[in-house]
Design a protein around this nucleic acid. Structure first.
Length: 418
DNA sequence: TGACGTCAAGATCCG
DNA sequence: CGGATCTTGACGTCA
C-alpha cells in the first residue's frame, strides 16, 4: 500500500502554486508562472521523498490554463531542465503520481464544445505525464459526468467518446464514483464495458451508495478486477466526513483510529490510498508512519518538531507525555504519538496555555527583532489576553517574523497552519 | 440565476 | 504604504 496526498503541501515554504486570471494571462506571464510552479512541484517531490510519501497527485493547475490559453506555448521546452529533474526524482524514488481534472471536465456532455474542451484538458494532463516519461501506472482520474435525465444515454455517450480517445489518454484514464451522479456500481458497469480501471472513493460511496448493505471491502474487491497488469497496483481514494460541514465535505485532518479500522476491514493486500483532506501532507505523514512495518524514530522526531508548539498551546500535560514517549528509542510509538497529539489538539483554547506557547515561539525572535517588532508583538499579545484580538492574529505576526528572519524550524511547524 | 468546490488573484479597506 | 479582509475568477451541471 502507498499513501499520498493531493496537489499542495502545507507548512512547506516555497511550495505555493501560482496562477493568474484570463485577463492578465499573457504568454510571457503564463510561461513564467509555469516555471515557478515547476520549482514548487520539485520542492514537494523533494519533501515527499524525505518524508517517505510514495504517492502524490500533481495539481491540474501546474501549468495555468494548460489546456486552453497555454496549450500552444513552449512551457515544456523553456523549462525542460526543471521537468527532467522532476522526472528523475519521481522515477529514482519509485514515487507514483497522478492527476485529477475536476468536476468541470465532462466527457459525456450533450454539448459538443464541452466535450472537445474535456478532450483538450485530458490531452494536456496526458502530455504533462508523458513529458515526465512516466509509464501508464501513473494515472489520470476522472468522473463520468452528468446524467442529463437519462442515465443510459449518458453512459452510452461516454462509451462513444471514450472509444475515439487516443491511447495516450486511455492508457492512463481511470473512472471514479462521484458523490451525486454515478455511483460505484454504475462506474463498474461502465468500466467493464470500455475496459478501464475503476477507482473507489469511500466517502462518495457513503453519500451516494450503490447498495448501502455492501461494505467498502466488497466494492474494492470488485474494482480490483478492473485493474490490468499495466495499470499497476489498485488505487483508491480515502477521506472522512467533516463533522459539521455539508455531507461529502472532507475533514480537516484524518483521524488515525478510523483510518486504521478502515485498513483492517480490508482483506488481503491493501490498495494504494490517495487521502483527500484539508491538511494534505500533514495527514499523509501521519498515516504513513502509523502503517510502516519498520518504525522510523527519526521521522517521528521530525514530526514532534512540527507539532510541539501546537501541543504546548493546548495541553502542557500531553507535551510532557510526548517528550517522555520519544525518549524511549525502542519500539514503535507512532500510534500512541498521534493519538496523544489528536487528543491534545482537540482541547479548547486556553489563554494561559496559548500565551505560554506564544512566548516560546517569540523566543526565536527576542534577540533579533527590532524594537518596533517587539512592541507590535507585545501589543497583539496583550490585546489577545484582554480578549480584543483572536489568537490567530498574534500567530500571524510570528509567522511573518519566521519568514523575515528565515527561521526554517518554525516555517516547517504546524503551529501556523489550520 | 445562483449554488456547488477550490484556491489564489485581485480589489478594497484600514491604520 | 503594508497588511488584513472581502470579492472575483474559471469550469459545467442542475434546480
Amino acid at each position: 500500500m502507498r499513501i499520498g496526498y493531493a496537489c499542495l503541501a502545507v507548512a512547506l515554504d516555497g511550495a505555493q502554486l501560482k496562477t493568474c486570471t484570463l485577463k492578465t494571462a499573457t504568454p510571457e506571464r503564463l510561461l513564467s508562472l509555469a516555471g515557478e510552479n515547476f520549482a514548487a512541484l520539485e520542492r514537494m517531490i523533494d519533501y515527499n521523498i524525505a518524508n517517505h510519501i510514495p504517492l502524490y497527485r500533481i495539481s491540474s493547475d501546474i501549468v495555468p490554463f494548460g489546456s486552453s490559453r497555454a496549450s500552444a506555448l513552449p512551457w515544456d521546452s523553456l523549462h525542460s531542465g526543471s521537468l527532467s529533474s522532476i522526472a528523475t526524482k519521481i522515477k529514482q524514488s519509485n514515487m507514483r503520481v497522478s492527476m485529477h481534472p475536476g468536476q468541470y471536465t465532462v466527457l459525456n456532455s450533450p454539448d459538443a464544445s464541452v466535450v472537445q474542451r474535456a478532450i483538450d484538458d485530458l490531452s494536456y494532463h496526458a502530455t504533462f505525464l508523458d513529458l515526465l516519461s512516466l509509464d501508464a501506472t501513473h494515472k489520470i482520474i476522472l468522473h463520468v459526468g452528468g446524467k442529463y435525465g437519462d442515465s443510459t444515454t449518458a453512459r452510452k455517450r461516454f462509451e462513444s467518446v471514450y472509444r475515439d480517445l487516443p491511447a495516450s489518454i486511455t492508457k492512463r484514464l481511470i473512472l471514479e464514483n462521484d458523490g451525486t451522479v454515478f455511483n460505484i456500481a454504475e462506474v463498474l458497469e461502465l468500466c467493464h464495458t470500455i475496459g478501464a480501471p475503476a477507482i473507489y472513493d469511500n466517502l462518495h460511496n457513503a453519500i451516494n451508495p450503490a447498495d448501502a448493505a455492501k461494505s467498502d471491502a466488497y466494492w474494492i474487491a470488485l474494482c480490483r478486477a478492473t485493474w490490468r497488469d499495466t495499470d499497476g497496483a489498485q488505487k483508491t481514494h480515502y477521506s472522512q466526513q467533516h463533522p459539521v460541514k455539508t455531507r461529502g465535505a472532507h475533514s480537516d485532518s484524518i483521524a488515525i483510529e478510523p483510518f486504521l479500522d478502515y485498513c483492517h476491514s480490508l482483506p488481503g493486500e491493501l490498495p494504494d490510498m490517495m487521502l483527500e483532506v484539508k491538511d494534505k501532507n500533514r495527514s499523509a505523514v501521519k498515516c504513513v508512519l502509523c502503517t510502516m512495518e519498520k518504525p522510523n524514530q527519526h521521522l517521528l522526531e521530525t514530526e514532534w518538531g512540527r507539532y510541539k508548539y501546537s501541543v504546548l498551546e493546548r495541553s502542557p500535560a500531553d507535551y510532557q507525555a510526548l517528550r517522555a514517549l520519544l525518549k524511549d528509542k525502542a519500539g514503535n510509538h507512532a500510534l500512541v504519538f498521534y493519538q496523544t497529539v489528536e487528543r491534545a489538539l482537540a482541547q479548547p483554547e486556553d489563554k494561559g496555555r496559548a500565551l505560554n506557547a506564544l512566548e516560546h515561539v517569540w523566543g526565536y525572535f527576542s534577540d533579533c527583532a527590532t524594537p518596533a517588532e517587539a512592541r507590535k508583538y507585545q501589543t497583539l499579545r496583550d490585546g489577545y489576553l484582554r480578549g480584543e484580538y483572536p489568537l490567530e492574529k498574534v500567530k500571524r505576526l510570528l509567522y511573518r517574523l519566521s519568514l523575515n528572519y528565515k527561521q526554517d524550524y518554525l516555517l516547517g511547524s504546524y503551529y501556523f497552519t489550520v
